[in-house]
Design a protein around this nucleic acid. Structure first.
Length: 376
DNA sequence: CGAAAGACTTGGAACAATCTTC
DNA sequence: GAAGATTGTTCCAAGTCTTTCG
């Protein structure tokens, strides 16, 4: 606790440590794009008030209006701390850095099947405000502190579990799972999703996985002709769901779209191929498809492409009678699409097309470069 | 069977380090 | 040697997809 006050309606309020910490999370985000968003501020303030009630803060009844909160004193303190660190002499900075490196060294390696491997993320995520990307409905909520009681450790039966770093605490559970590659996990307090501790990118597990990914893409090269012939045929199918599946596969193949799994209400409204809606698609005669949607990370995808006339006709049919909010591919699910793709080749799924597409592109660029006698 | 759980990859943002440039 | 540009690294949100469950 730094003891710096929150100014509220002109008064200096010295908050209890738990409350002060949350106010400090917000102060750190002052001036960023996040703090300009209504959802972010609303979610933050709701959690801030909830924390005051939970900790029986004496300010619970006082701090009622976000607009009267002034975090600038706390912010000035954060800025001062940062400036102080910046002003430190280089040798002093180096000493601190080296001491920290020595402290964490033992957490950065794991022995796997007798080999020493680097651990990727050996720290749990610190508490703070959930940021999110795009218009995320949970942005600004307080991400709580992870304690040893939240963490499950995966280790060999014969091995001694790592010592719990917090005195008086203990790990949630010690397990011995041989079929997975994670070393530990906890649940995220915002999304309730799983957060894992993995080995580093240079580890055998990650390397093998990466290798098999590219081998899959290479194998796709052998059957891509068959896949294309098959979906072209299915554009003319009498079965509308087969038609939809064939057009979706075509878009994933030629535009390298992501498949687009379903998302919940608690996430940003973004889409991929299978979740494209009426409003994301425009058809311009004679055969131009215009796509405009927010994809992964709420990044806008805008593209106008000339498509095969048969695809154009299919899309006209799919959109017929639909309105904003309706799925373009209402008869296709990601699962059904991937089941169909697996029929062509073991392990084939939508995302393999992206790896394939990128690999073919890189290969072509390398060929061009090699042709001009360049060293690569 | 659809939904939820679970495990893994992907990739942007934030931050840190280093490299110009004046 | 400060400031700004560039590059590298870490963090963690946001995807994919298979397996398990009710």
């Amino acid at each position: 606790p730094h003891g710096k006050p929150l100014r509220y309606d002109g008064e200096n309020l010295h908050l209890e440590p738990e409350i002060e910490e949350i106010a400090t999370f917000y102060a750190a985000k002052l001036g960023t794009e996040h703090a300009k968003k209504k959802t972010f501020n609303q979610n933050f303030f709701a959690d801030f008030k909830r924390a005051m009630r939970k900790h029986n803060s004496k300010y619970s009844g006082i701090i009622k209006d976000f607009k009267k909160c002034d975090f600038s004193v706390i912010r000035a303190h954060l800025d001062a701390v940062k400036a102080q660190q910046k002003d430190m002499r280089p040798c002093e900075r180096k000493a601190i850095r080296e001491a920290e490196a020595a402290r964490v060294a033992k957490y950065q390696v794991a022995i796997v099947d007798g080999r020493e491997e680097k651990v990727g993320n050996y720290r749990v995520e610190p508490p703070g405000l959930f940021l999110g990307r795009g218009e995320h409905p949970l942005a600004g909520k307080v991400k709580r502190r992870i304690l040893p009681e939240d963490v499950t450790i995966n280790i060999g039966e014969q091995e001694t579990p790592p010592e719990c770093p917090l005195p008086g605490h203990r790990w949630k559970k010690i397990v011995h799972e041989h079929s997975v590659t994670w070393l530990a996990f906890w649940r995220d307090s915002i999304t309730s999703g799983f957060k894992y501790v993995w080995l580093g990118a240079g580890s055998a597990f990650k390397g093998m996985s990466d290798h098999s990914k590219f081998e899959k893409a290479r194998k796709l090269h052998g059957v891509i002709g068959h896949v294309r012939a098959e979906y072209r045929r299915a554009w003319k199918s009498k079965d509308l769901s087969e038609q939809q599946r064939a057009v979706a596969t075509y878009l994933i193949d030629v535009l390298a779209l992501r498949v687009g799994n379903e998302k919940s209400e608690d996430e940003a409204d973004t889409v991929g191929c299978c979740s494209l809606r009426f409003e994301h698609v425009k058809l311009e005669r004679p055969s131009t498809l215009r796509l405009d949607f927010l994809g992964k990370d709420s990044i806008r995808y805008v593209n106008s492409v000339s498509v095969d006339p048969a695809v154009f006709a299919c899309l006209q049919r799919f959109l017929n009678g639909k309105k904003n909010g309706d799925d373009v591919f209402d008869l296709v699910t990601v699962t059904s699409l991937n089941d169909y793709l697996r029929g062509f080749m073991d392990g084939l799924s939508g995302k393999v097309f992206r790896t394939y597409n990128a690999s073919v592109t890189l290969d072509r660029l390398l060929q061009d470069t090699a042709g001009r006698d360049r060293v690569v």
